[in-house]
Nucleic acid binder design. Structure first.
Length: 362
DNA sequence: AAATCCGACAACCGCATCGGA
DNA sequence: TTCCGATGCGGTTGTCGGATT
């Protein structure tokens, strides 16, 4: 980027430098006086023509700086405070669709700025990816987000809605903490972290259509009994969610990846096409490299949620606003002699101050 | 109580794009 | 068609305050 500086941009940079020294432009945090100056000027002359504004308003700032201050902070309809779960959900979904198109994403969150959304992504979402030691753009992380994070956000959203309408919340407990042998995570991480997602940057919804809804098996056995072979099968399965946001956009999908054809035969062709195939999810042989399984909760969840045909499902029922969340029943492929150290998934990252101790209870 | 660390977010920077002259 | 100023966008850095040691 830096090396590709054109003659033109060098020239402009030179001009900017000259301006900086001639006018003694201010930098850094804005003062209350500066904010007032800017707001008053815009109240009189309207937005736009930022360089002119910078020259005429008495502000010793660049036009760029004025514009940014107005758009990201002073503009009256700016919404401040924590992002609501539904906003987080929307960001996750839209980012999975469009990637780092922050301004475009921001257009779907009235009152939120691209800067705010970008910061949210970098500080919250990428942090989770870092902790898991996967690329935030990798298919595995994205699916883990869909499998674990999104349903919880939706759960919180629905719970809030239900509480506000009926004052009564009927939510099932969160899925049981998964247990997973570190070697499985090791293989998963090793093979997945180097496979960034290829996105379709077109307007069309890139979400795969081949995935279909996988109904939950209500029988307890389906959730408690996992054969060793099934437990090792790297099969992502999550149910489909779709919704229309409060502004009428959508439907957005939290799609299900279901490689089980229902007859116990895994068809990985779809996943291979999506970069989620057996290759990408190869759970190589156990080795001594510790992959910090205490950090791998999300992937643990993804793995264990999907192993053995267990299915994670969130069924949203209409009418009364009730929410039914049926967690993944699979307990994962924990070896008998494996005692996982408590893994943590900080749900306060979702805006919830609770902290689950995975492998050790909540 | 002081020092250090770390997360959150405001602000800056460089480049791309747009639109008018 | 070209030039150039204005604006928009995304990546990065700086700063501040709370948490931790």
């Amino acid at each position: 980027m830096e090396g590709a500086m054109t003659t033109r941009s060098k020239h402009r940079r030179h001009e900017e430098d000259q301006e900086m020294t001639m006018v003694e432009l201010r930098r850094g945090p804005w003062t209350l006086e500066e904010d007032n100056l800017l707001m008053n000027y815009i109240a009189c002359h309207g937005e736009g023509r930022w360089n002119l504004l910078a020259r005429c308003s008495g502000l010793k700032r660049t036009g760029k700086s004025c514009r940014l201050r107005w758009l990201n902070y002073l503009k009256p309809d700016i919404k401040r405070g924590n992002l609501a779960p539904e906003e987080q959900l929307l960001i996750l979904e839209l980012h999975s669709k469009w990637g780092n198109r922050w301004s475009r994403i921001a257009q779907h969150l009235p009152g939120r700025t691209d800067n705010e959304i970008k910061n949210y992504w970098r500080t919250r979402v990428q942090k989770q990816a870092r902790q898991l030691r996967v690329d935030a753009n990798s298919a595995v992380f994205r699916d883990a987000v869909r499998c674990y994070w999104m349903p919880r956000l939706l759960e919180k959203t629905m719970a809030a809605a239900a509480a506000s309408t009926s004052g009564e919340v009927l939510l099932p407990p969160l899925p049981p903490p998964p247990q997973l042998h570190p070697s499985r995570v090791a293989g998963l991480l090793a093979s997945s972290s180097s496979s960034p997602v290829q996105r379709d940057t077109s307007d069309s919804d890139y979400l795969p259509q081949r995935y279909h809804h996988h109904p939950v098996d209500p029988s307890p056995s389906a959730s408690s009994t996992v054969s060793s072979s099934a437990a090792l099968a790297p099969v992502p399965c999550f149910s489909e969610l779709s919704w229309v946001d409060q502004y009428g956009y959508g439907p957005y999908y939290s799609y299900g990846a279901n490689l089980d054809d229902g007859a116990g035969v895994f068809d990985d062709s779809a996943a291979l096409e999506e970069g989620l195939g057996l290759d990408a999810l190869d759970l190589g042989p156990a080795d001594d490299s510790d992959v910090a399984h205490s950090d791998a909760t999300l992937l643990d969840y993804l793995n264990s949620a999907c192993a053995g045909g267990g299915t994670m499902m969130m069924a949203v029922t209409g009418g009364g606003g009730g929410v039914q969340s049926s967690g993944c029943g699979a307990t994962g492929g924990a070896d008998a002699d494996y005692r996982p150290s408590p893994c943590t998934w900080r749900t306060d990252e979702l805006g919830d101050p609770r902290q689950h101790q995975w492998g050790g209870g909540i």
